[in-house]
Every structure is written in C-alpha cells, then in structure tokens.
C-alpha cells in the first residue's frame, strides 16, 4: 500500500532530499520512512538523545549483571563516628565510581544501575499498556463514529478527570501486601504499570481518534472499501500503518513522563519497596536519613540519573516528531 503518511506535500520532500546531495535517481526509491530517518539523522541533538536512550536500555538490561550486588554493606568505607563515607564527594573511588551511601556503605553505581532497570521496566510496560488501550479505543472511536464514538470520547473525559498521582498513591495504600498471586515488588510493579497505563491511555486515545477521523475520509480508504474490504481489514491493515508515526512519537514522549511518575511514587514511599533500589527511593533515603546536606552526592547522583534519562527521551522524542511531521517543527 502506498502509505499516504501525512508527512509533507511532495513538493516539500524533493528539494529537501536533494539538499542531502544525492542524485535524482536515488530519490525515487525512497520511502517516507527513509526520508524521516534521513531527517532524524541530520538532527544531531535528537541523535545524541537517541544514543543515550539506547545506552540506558542496554544498562537496564545488562548492567545489573556487570556491577556488584547493590545490597552489600561496606562498613569499612564509612567513617565510624560521622557515619559518612570516607573521602570527598561521597567516597568516590575507582572501586566505587559514584561513591557509597552514608551509614550502610552500599555502592551507589550498582544501585543506580539496578534502579535503571526497575524504572525503565515500569515506564516501558506502562507505556505499552497505555498505548495499546489508547490506540484500540481511538481507532474504533474515530472509525466507527456515532454513539460508539460518543461513549468512548465521554469515557476519555471521565478518565482525564482522575487525579493520577493522588489516585496511584491512594490505590497502593488500599491494596493488601499480597494479592492477585503476587507479592512484594512484583505486586507493586504490576500495580504501578496498571495504574499508569490505565489512566494515561486517553491522551493517546484522543490523538489517535483525531488522526483516524481525518484518515477515514481519505481516498485510499474508499478504494479499499470499494474492492470489498471490511471493517477489521480497513482498521488494522489500512489505517493502523498510517498511525505508526503518531504512535511512535507519543510513546517516546510518554515514557519520560512515566519515568518521572515512578520516581515520584518511589520518592513518596509508595513505589518500589526498599531495599530494592529505585532512583526516587534513593532520593527519599537521602532526605529521610538527613544526610543529603552533609553528603550532597547521595541525592545529586540519583537526581541526575532521572534528569539525564528523562531529558534523553524528551530530546529523542522531539527529534522523532520533527522528523516524522515536519509541519510541527516550523
């Protein structure tokens, strides 16, 4: 299918492609995806963000196997009278590049790396859930229309009326410590993914609904219908491929929001249960132990980890949006 991705009028594409200094022959065989990729590759900031994202994903997957156990105490690195790490900047050394925690002497690097795994896992799963519900609901609402659209659009309004953060912390408070055959952190992770995913889908749903509404009126849909294609085929084979761009962009931008959300919950003490490391939990430890004034690195390192991760996803997401939809980057 000639994907009429709503990217740019053809007059816009050709001169831009020529700018990259390739002969006219090469331009003919270039798909819209390739054009977007070319554009993305030229956006150095977005590429840097993308590189950091890939690095972080690799760290989250393989990092925990490479660093030491995050729960080992190193009492010998702690000043016995002041309970703070020996040496400057929170005890930074070759063996502990990010230093050690006050009191316990746990290695900060390994806690950051293990925290990355938890943080990204929750963010990705919650995003996947929100995106799947949002896409299915949005595409159905936009394509079917009528009362179905009315019901779905209203329910999106209702969901958007829920105070997500309040709701999430409240829900964690009322669920017993073991439920649904899960307990401890696997229950918490499941709960967080469910809450975030279940209440964040309307954002995606609205975007997809709007896009579907305009795509529905396009000629290629009429063409498919005229050769006898039915609802499900049109929905998933004709419409869905054209929605890949917005889905990709808004998923990339939803992930950092979810990372911040998980960090906030762990900071408030209703996210990941210690001693399992999480970035928000590390900041909360630094505050509650009262050591963040004496040993600022204790708080700054997890804070920077959140900041860099969220920033990288945002930069990459912004670049992706500009590459896939040049109109937005005017």
């Amino acid at each position: 299918m000639a994907a009429p991705l709503d990217v740019a009028p053809s007059g816009d594409v050709a001169p831009e492609a020529m700018l990259s200094g390739i002969s006219a022959k090469a331009i003919e065989g270039r798909s819209l995806g390739q054009i977007a990729w070319l554009r993305l590759r030229r956006d150095k900031v977005a590429m840097a963000g993308g590189a950091v994202v890939i690095f972080l994903i690799l760290v989250a997957i393989f990092g925990p196997f490479l660093v030491q156990n995050p729960d080992i105490y190193h009492a010998n690195l702690i000043n016995p009278t002041l309970s703070r790490p020996n040496g400057p900047f929170g005890g930074i050394s070759v063996a502990h590049p990010f230093g050690v925690e006050p009191v316990t002497g746990r290695d900060v690097l390994s806690r950051i790396v293990n925290g990355a795994r938890v943080s990204l896992l929750i963010a990705f799963l919650a995003t996947a859930l929100a995106v799947s519900i949002g896409v299915v609901m949005g595409i159905i609402a936009g394509y079917v229309g009528g009362w179905v659209d009315g019901v779905i659009a209203r329910s999106m309004d209702v969901f958007l009326a829920f105070p997500l953060l309040v709701f999430a912390i409240a829900l964690v408070g009322v669920i017993p410590s073991s439920a649904f055959g899960l307990s401890g952190n696997s229950l918490r992770i499941g709960l967080l993914v469910f809450v975030i995913g279940f209440f964040a889908w309307p954002y995606m749903g609205r975007i997809i609904r709007g896009q579907t509404l305009s795509l529905r009126e396009r000629e290629f849909v009429d063409a498919a219908r005229s050769i006898g294609a039915r609802g499900p085929y049109i929905l998933f084979r004709e419409l869905l491929p054209n929605l890949v761009a917005p889905i990709l962009v808004y998923s990339t931008l939803l992930i950092p929001t979810n990372i911040l959300f998980e960090a906030a919950l762990s900071y408030l003490g209703v996210g990941i249960i210690p001693p399992t490391p999480s970035w928000g939990g590390m900041i909360s430890d630094a505050v509650n132990s009262g050591f963040y004034s004496i040993d600022p690195m204790y708080m700054i390192i997890p804070g920077l980890a959140i900041f860099i991760t969220v920033m990288a996803f945002n930069l990459f997401g912004d670049g992706l949006r500009d590459a896939l939809d040049p109109r937005s980057s005017r």
């Binding site: 911040l260 960090a263 900041i283 963040y292 004034s293 804070g303 969220v310 920033m311 945002n314 912004d318």
Partner: peptide, 22 residues
C-alpha cells in the same frame, strides 16, 4: 525549558531548599 520539563519537582525542590534555605 527542556531541562525544566525533565527535572523532577522534588529534586529541584531539595536543591533549592539546600542552597537558598540552608
């Protein structure tokens, strides 16, 4: 602004508190 949307409120809050209050 991009940094602003990427920073958790509690982190900026703690740094502000540390610097301008203590």
């Amino acid at each position: 602004a991009l940094a602003g949307v990427s920073l958790p409120i509690f982190f900026t809050g703690l740094i502000a508190l540390e610097l301008f209050s203590y």
